[in-house]
Write a protein that binds this DNA or RNA. Structure first.
Lengths: 304, 304
DNA sequence: CTGGTTCCATTAGCGATACTGATCGGGTGG
DNA sequence: CCACCCGATCAGTATCGCTAATGGAACCAG
């Protein structure tokens, strides 16, 4: 179970082709074939059906493990690189689309003022991509948002020794067209809306999957899917009656054709958390500027 | 970052000796020396100080990653073995000392009656050992107990694709000597007891570390440590005034020299959860007998 | 100070490993 | 039925990773 073999196994399974994977990885087709054979010999089970190339049950299981293992190996590398070597001259931040970046932008600018030689960058990415980016060392800090009960931590992808700190929390609102029968309510219960028509907009609103996980209720069926991250487009969809959307209260500006009704029950808040590994020098300056609320640390970790 | 190298690195760091680790692993000392050198060359950093053998900062970081990575690799192996190959003729269960094994013992016996050819076994282990044992495939099912807010899952060691199900929940009680001033109370708030003298008995009572993590309060200092798992000894210690202990209500039998006062706040319950990977045939029979309450599944997993 | 001991590093040599390039064979589509 | 695509297999070779032997530093006893 050499990581090398795992990596090519993942590539083969993803591309459903030995030869394509070989080209991707810079091997010959023969090498890939032998690597897969070695893996199968080691585990004593066929992992792939050939022609067409499809994972077997065992292969599927291995795939589910391989990605996190490879991620964790990268994370270890990145972690070690951070503690050794000179402090880097850049500061790369990542944020999920709905994260509260208010403090971050200011802090980034402030760090650049204090350390003019460091270049700064900010990328907006999916929630998981932010966390894995930080783990891999491609980002120095990440800002991730999500929905939880007020006292619970966000449920992030587990990658080991990352620290988190709460940056801000706020209410959630249901966005409805102004003409909707519930638009005049002052508060809404989620249970009443399980059967409403929702827009599934993973990048522009709270993803319905996350909602189902937290609310434990089933339902929340998507009648419409929006794959962009543009908030104004999403709100236009809501106004046009494509469905409802759950959003952090802070992002819904007053619009005449929309109503934004606070969520009353269950008690859920929108929260953005700061994620980072052991801090490089510029990143430490940044987090110092951001750390207002109480610090918290991932399981099995201590904050320096 | 071959797992092979990681494994010997962990062994060397643990034993603080190249030669001892070599003997443990069945290598020559030379091989171990070369493996460590290879790892250091790969990462570009010294991982160990020699004479005496001590991890450097980078080595320490690597150690924190290596154990979970190796565990996860073992878990992948075990997972694959479970889906392939004949159903095993044994059923190995593990349970943490305070887990509610009431239903389990009956279920084990029932499975043996239904499938006379399977041999059954039960091991009482530490909480983490139960979870890692299940992950590694050394156990087919595990019963783990812990303390949480009523609607929260137990915070288990993260090893990937394990499923969990609630088996039972119950109240928590504070065990006090009968002569204690608070012994006559009908309920106690944990906040009032942060500064009391506690007995830290990780195997015989709720570990104070878990208590601190869940209650978010600091304090709960240990005035006395008991490393056994014998409940009667712990209760005798409490009666003798060595300190307080937090226990699941169900395990404190009436004793004249003891009081067991329910915990009123914060709202915490004692819960035992069933942990398992994909189920072998006998294990499936067992869990079917145990699954009364609602099923729940770990992040990133689906229950079959 | 000296000889012995312990421990890790280094080197030489050898067997195993893992790659490339070429070839084979089966399945597919024109 | 032929051409082609794709994965398996084989031969050959370079590299890797092990053992065995040796080297050198630190430590200890006398």
């Amino acid at each position: 179970m050499d990581p090398h073999l795992l990596r090519t196994f993942v590539a083969v399974a993803r591309s459903a082709s030995f030869s394509t994977a070989a080209r991707e990885l810079g091997y010959t087709q023969s090498a890939v074939s032998q690597q897969i054979a070695a893996l199968e010999a080691d585990l004593g089970v066929p992992l792939l059906r050939r022609r067409p190339v499809t994972p077997t049950d065992a292969g599927q299981r291995l795939l589910e493990h391989a990605t996190p293992i490879l991620l964790r190996l990268d994370a270890a590398r990145a972690d070690i690189r951070r503690v050794s070597g000179a402090p880097p001259a850049h500061l790369r931040a990542g944020a999920s689309p709905l994260a509260d970046t208010g403090g971050l932008t200011e802090a980034l600018v402030a760090v650049r003022r204090a350390m003019p030689r460091v270049s700064a960058g900010l990328s907006v990415l999916g929630r998981d991509a932010v966390v894995t980016g930080v783990a891999r060392g491609e980002l120095d800090v990440g800002l991730v948002d999500g929905v939880t009960a007020p006292s619970d931590p966000l449920r992030l992808v587990e990658v080991g020794t990352l620290s988190t700190a709460v940056v801000s929390t706020g209410p959630l609102v249901v966005a409805l067209p102004a003409s909707h029968p519930l638009a005049s309510r002052t508060a809404l219960r989620l249970g009443d809306l399980a059967d409403a028509g929702w827009i599934d907009a993973p990048d522009a609103a709270i993803p319905l999957g996350q909602l189902r996980a937290v609310a434990r209720g089933d339902g929340f069926r998507a009648g419409f899917r929006y794959d962009g991250a543009e908030r104004s487009v999403l709100l236009a969809l809501v106004a046009a009656g494509a469905g409802l959307a759950l959003l952090p209260g802070s992002v819904v500006r007053d619009r005449p054709d929309l109503a934004a009704v606070p969520l009353a029950a269950p008690a859920l808040t929108h929260r953005t958390e700061l994620v980072h590994g052991s801090l490089t020098e510029p990143a430490a300056a940044l987090t110092a500027l951001l750390s207002t609320a109480g610090r918290r640390t991932g399981p099995g970790t201590t904050t320096a």
